[in-house]
Nucleic acid binder design. Structure first.
Lengths: 148, 148
DNA sequence: TATTAAATGAGAATAATTTTCAATTAATCC
DNA sequence: GGATTAATTGAAAATTATTCTCATTTAATA
């Protein structure tokens, strides 16, 4: 039975976890919730803070473990900032890319893949086999453009 | 006067440094040398080790400072591994992208931009202004394909 | 060669991440 | 619903990564 207020992301995560024989713990679902609620990239510390607000004390190690696992499962994506830092965003499995606002760290995702029509044959000449790609756009979001 | 054995990368780096009023120190040039010689992504530790082999003792902080600066100058690029780690590759200023072999961590660069013909207008609907992009390909290099 | 601002080294300080292990909990089976 | 069990967690220590400080050194310039 599904709780009324359970969001799609939450049930999606549960499903993925169940398929892999992993447990849907309160902590893991809280991480999904926090990420899904956020309009910007969150650092480990911010996620930890958010989870603690929801559940009371929660070990930081759990957050690390959860995020690593979620990344492997394709539930979250780790994105990067120009300054070398990084943050996490919810990412629902399918092929999705992200734009990051360098001013407010807002994340915006889009499904059109910039490299969709690229002919990898041209870069595969020396025998390299492309298996995956990572694409992230940088720029300013609408609000920050106006504010500037 | 240019030393006979000075490589292009080294003189390129010197030029960029001079333009910005920064010093071409032995340590900085050693970092360029190490990176340029390497066929794979190097970690901070590996770069530090390489520089120490060339120059004798060298502070780790200098390596950090140098790499951060080089990244800002567009001389090196910080790339990422699926496992969350990262490494540095020489990157000569112009628009270049990298492929990383997930087996041997080899780096291969190419100049055709996969996103070259992408129409950013489609993702800029909500007012986001794309300023830059980060693209990195993952796969297996020829050697590792054969070895597998 | 003397001058000077920039850069370095050493190590302390801080931050980030991983590990360990006993206690807890979600899923499963009756 | 309660017992069972393997997975998961929390807490703290251990490890690793990064930054900072400041006295000393060095590259560029005149």
């Amino acid at each position: 039975m599904t709780k009324d207020f359970e969001c799609m992301q939450e049930s999606y995560a549960k499903e993925v976890l169940r398929e892999k024989g992993l447990k849907s713990t309160t902590q893991r679902l809280a991480v999904v919730h926090i990420l899904h609620m956020s309009e910007k990239l969150l650092s480990i510390g911010e996620i930890h803070g958010g989870v603690k607000d929801m559940l009371g004390n929660t070990g930081l190690a759990t957050i690390y473990r959860t995020l690593e696992m979620f990344e492997d499962l394709g539930i979250v994506k780790r994105l990067h900032f120009p300054d070398g830092g990084h943050g996490y965003a919810f990412s629902q499995g399918e092929h999705v890319h992200h734009m990051v606002c360098v001013d407010c760290r807002g994340v915006f995702d889009f499904s059109e893949c910039p490299a969709e029509n690229f002919d990898y044959a041209s870069v595969e000449k020396q025998g390299f086999r492309v298996k995956d790609h990572f694409i992230q756009l940088f720029g300013q979001c609408g609000k920050c453009v106006e504010a500037a």
